[in-house]
Write a protein that binds this DNA or RNA. Structure first.
Lengths: 348, 348
DNA sequence: GCGCTTGCTGCAATCGCTTGCTGCACCGCT
DNA sequence: AGCGGTGCAGCAAGCGATTGCAGCAAGCGC
């Protein structure tokens, strides 16, 4: 029914071994033989059996990419960049590898399950993106799983995620703390003293780091850090909308709202506008990430640009072994403050 | 080194066959035996070898999803919905399947290469999303490939893509023509007569259909259809920005700009604003797709909502054989006109 | 008590490819 | 002419699961 290596071998009048070698190209084969084989492959329209090959060679050409939410451009951009480097068709790399994008939805269990699934497939590499959940047992379970994967020859890269201790996973971490700090410093410099902060979900590292940066800036400037000015919620627009209403209820005199990310900031803008406040005349707004739509917001969003595509590409190359990991296996990637229209000097 | 079925079997004092049957759960196994096996699996921390299993069973648990651009929420949303239905961890489906998301970048060659790669992996199903390229040889090549995949037992579903003739691929097609027509009818009804149209890349079906709908509306209303009022470009913000400047250059008296999709519309808004025009007082703008950010545009975008998540979910279920394909294997999915702030009555 | 059905379990072949090792020409050197 | 080298090709042993078929024990009817 389906064409196998043996069929090709028969047609080309060589042994299956030779066909395999021609196809894998890592063994000397005489030019004439090679050509005969390739012709046979072509004539029979032969397609290698991936599973069989993976079984025999004990490695597959699958690369896993774990993301929290594939519909979120934050992850989409990274995933795209990673994929373009791991050498799917059209990528600069040689081999043709398939990217397996796994949507964890931010759930720790799914994260583990997906790692197991990738282990089962004997993935060549796995890139984990996005913040980690701060939960000791889970972190330990993930670390154990990563160690097992590494032992099985799977390369592990963390992209935009804190390093995993006791693991030899390479980590490209975003400087969320520094970015958060810079952003708030900028607002303080403009004269803001009553700043609301819309944080992400409590248990995520990204949330904590950005918030810590914010607080560090407040502390350094001697600005009071009223805990009632911080609200937690998911990383989406709706959360920003609702959190902003809540913040305004608690303190209608806020002059600035710092959001956990750009989507949240957009929701905040909507809420502020509905409450009759102008941006930035009445209230300044700041986001984080600098996703493509941020520049189109009206006014355009002051935010911290994270080089998502660059980081993803680098992670992809490292995962493929085409680039040296950073010294110590850890690199801190800084964001860049983008001052735009949504932040201004407070009135009065 | 790595634990195999045989190891588990030895530990549970049964044959490998029995272990396999316990794991696959499709064969009678005594409860006591089953439990013993599961305990052994657990104690040894056994992970099934995917490739070996796929080889022996001649099917894998991989499902391919082809998208044009994973960083674009249009595709991200569909991919996420598809994935949630194909039964990865946390999905409602039983088996645990892995979604392979392939970024074609809109390139026909990559599309074919990816299909071959998926064929190689013996994918259980493949979902192709987004418009097709209108190019006879390529369409024929894709159809041939799809036929081969089907013959190998891979289920094929097209999601948001026109049917593929001579193929038994199930097609869930968006009614781009109808949506385009409704949108333009809406603008005409408001009183617009000089409408610019920013179309997508020439060779894509989506582009053509939306444009045809636009023209049909013009024709039906007896509005002149000056070809100089149509500009083609990529489906991104920047293209919208540049195309708008070009349209204004050609005819500064335009009262409305219809964009190929929401991203393009956002670019158009930016260009209009920079040229000193107000939206919608001076110029109305309309998009297509109703991506999440459209409602946050200022003013919020009049557009055609496409039920991306629903369509993706349905495609996923059909791909998994958990839902009956539509009669004839083809379903037309309609969009819904969302009238919002960016469209209004033209002045004068 | 015998034979037959029913319900599990095991044997062993098979899936299609990779790769270490052996084997065979042929070449160039002495 | 003899000999070591070199360059290709083939043999055959796996890789780790699945599954058709055989086998065996217990249960049941007559």
């Amino acid at each position: 029914m389906t064409v196998t290596l043996a069929d090709v071998a028969a047609r080309a009048q060589v042994s299956p071994a030779t066909v395999s070698r021609v196809l894998n190209g890592n063994y000397p084969v005489a030019a004439s033989t090679r050509e005969r084989v390739l012709r046979a492959v072509d004539e029979l329209d032969y397609v290698l059996n991936g599973p069989a090959s993976a079984l025999a060679a004990a490695t597959s050409d699958l690369v896993g990419i774990l993301v929290n939410d594939i519909a979120d451009p934050f992850f989409g951009i990274m995933a795209g960049a990673i994929q373009s480097e791991i050498g799917g068709p059209g990528g600069r790399a040689g081999g043709e590898r398939l990217a397996v994008v796994c949507n964890t939805g931010g759930s720790p269990e799914r994260e583990l399950t997906y790692l197991t699934l990738l282990q089962r497939q004997r993935a060549a590499a796995v890139v984990l993106t996005g913040g980690a959940v701060e939960n000791e047992p889970h972190a330990a379970a993930v670390a154990a799983k990563l160690r097992k994967l590494t032992a099985a020859g799977t390369r592990i890269v963390l992209c935009g995620r804190p390093p995993a201790p006791d693991t030899d996973a390479v980590a490209l971490t975003f400087d969320n703390r520094g970015g958060g700090r810079e952003l708030t410093e900028h607002l303080i410099r403009l004269g803001h003293r009553r700043l609301g902060y819309i944080a992400g979900p409590e248990e995520r590292t990204t949330t904590r780091h950005r918030l810590e940066g914010h607080r560090a800036a407040l502390a350094a400037a001697g600005v009071e850090d009223d805990p009632r000015r911080t609200v937690h919620g998911p990383y989406d627009r709706r959360a920003g909308y609702e959190a902003t209403l809540e913040l305004l209820r608690r303190d209608p005199t806020l002059t600035a709202v710092v959001a956990a990310n750009d989507s949240v900031a957009l929701g905040a803008c909507a809420a502020l506008r509905e409450s009759g406040r102008r941006i930035p005349e009445d209230v300044s707004v700041a986001g984080f990430d600098d996703l493509p739509f941020s520049i189109d917001a009206v006014p355009s969003l002051t935010t911290v640009r994270l080089p998502l595509a660059e980081a993803g590409a680098r992670a992809g190359r490292i995962a493929m072994g085409r680039e040296e990991p950073p010294p110590g296996g850890i690199a801190m990637i800084r964001g860049e403050l983008m001052v735009r229209g949504s932040s201004g000097v407070p009135r009065g």
